[in-house]
């Protein structure tokens, strides 16, 4: 999509829409009768990235890597333990979402919305479509029913549902349609930032493309900025302008999509790509598995969290935690050996 690059150049003025700095979220591990804290799960551990206006940042990683927690911290669905989430609001002011009091956060909510993974769990089964899609308007001050009804009809049409469905309840809809309803609700307040947490992974394969296309169309029409969280590399590659790879609560690599997929700089990124089963029997041999398992974020290894599984690990990797650094323009990697390694990405065939 060409418009993506245009948007990133003409709308940023150097300031990203969202700038996440040193974000941390630790969950205490409690034990015993008195619930004493005996340790912490470092779900998100010093995460840094930014999102430019109008682009899609894909956040990819395996289960438990902290990508979902990161996305929820950004929307303050959970309170971060530390770090800053700088957001450039519509008013032009930059605010730190991580520190914002609840009342001010509520005022900011209309600007950022979320699409959930499971469309069966994210719609209140006791509310009909009108109530679901119009509730954001109602709680944010649009009390006139007819005004809301007009807007709901418009939104339903926008996401490809018939406005006549307004009186129906969620139980009347299939997974794909429900996800459209979730999207309509998210768009009700004309948000600027939409966080999509695995929005297609619960859908049937034949329905995923419909929802992905819809998300791309809406971005173009409404100039939305997406944070797209997923575990599926193919989906992330398809929809993202830039991609961030997470591993055990930390960012391993961030780069523009093509750069990341063609010339990955972090051994984990390369391994992840090599592990993806390609839907073509003729490229069979490329599936190179990574040894071992993902470490627990409650008890991560020393130094670089990836070193026990990394084929390129050296002594320094066991001792020092690598920092995220820009080794090429817009290409950030957290690896001690990033500059010297030649890693295989996914070439065009």
């Amino acid at each position: 999509m060409t418009s993506n690059t245009e948007q990133t150049t003409n709308s940023t003025n150097g300031h990203p829409l969202l700038d996440v700095k040193g974000l941390k979220k630790y969950f205490p591990i409690k034990k015993g009768f008195f619930k004493k804290t005996v340790g912490h799960v470092r779900a998100v551990d010093d995460v840094n990235f930014f999102i430019r206006e109008g682009e899609t940042l894909g956040l990819v990683g395996e289960s438990g890597c902290g990508k979902t927690t990161t996305s929820r911290c950004i929307l303050r669905a959970v309170d971060p333990t530390g770090g800053r989430v700088l957001y450039r609001a519509k008013s032009g002011a930059t605010v730190d979402i991580a520190q914002l009091p609840a009342s001010e956060m509520r005022r900011l909510r209309p600007e950022m919305q979320m699409i959930f993974q499971d469309p069966f769990a994210s719609l209140n089964p006791r509310m009909n479509l009108f109530d679901i899609v119009s509730e954001p308007m109602f709680v944010n001050g649009i009390k006139s029913r007819s005004e809301r009804a007009d807007r709901v009809a418009e939104l339903l049409q926008l996401v490809g549902l018939r406005p006549e469905y307004m009186q129906r309840f969620p139980h009347a809809f299939s997974g794909g349609q429900r996800q459209r309803i979730v999207i309509a609700r998210a768009l009700a307040l004309k948000p600027r930032l939409v966080v999509a947490d695995e929005p297609v992974s619960a859908l049937d394969v034949s329905v995923q493309a419909q929802v992905l296309n819809l998300l791309l169309d809406l971005q173009e029409q409404l100039k939305l900025t997406y944070l797209f969280v997923a575990h599926d590399l193919s989906v992330v590659k398809h929809i993202s302008t830039r991609v961030a790879v997470m591993y055990v609560g930390k960012i391993a690599e961030i780069a523009p999509t093509d750069a990341l997929f063609n010339t990955p700089k972090h051994p984990y990124t390369a391994a992840l790509m090599a592990a993806v089963p390609v839907a073509d029997p003729r490229v069979r041999s490329k599936m190179i598995p990574l040894q071992g398992d993902v470490p627990s974020p409650a008890n991560p290894p020393s130094g670089c969290y990836f070193h026990p599984r990394c084929p390129f690990a050296e002594a320094v990797c066991k001792q020092e935690t690598p920092q995220l650094q820009e080794i090429e323009p817009n290409h950030f990697v957290a690896c001690h050996r990033a500059k010297e390694l030649e890693l295989d990405g996914i070439s065009a065939n």
Binding site: L75, F116, A121, S122, N124, R185
Partner: peptide, 21 residues
């Protein structure tokens, strides 16, 4: 539950989240 989180994210206050959702 996601729909409760969703209600919080669209800006519902605590009483509304509890009694409506």
């Amino acid at each position: 539950e996601d729909f409760v989180v969703a209600a919080e994210l669209i800006g519902c206050g605590k009483p509304r989240v509890i009694f409506r959702h």
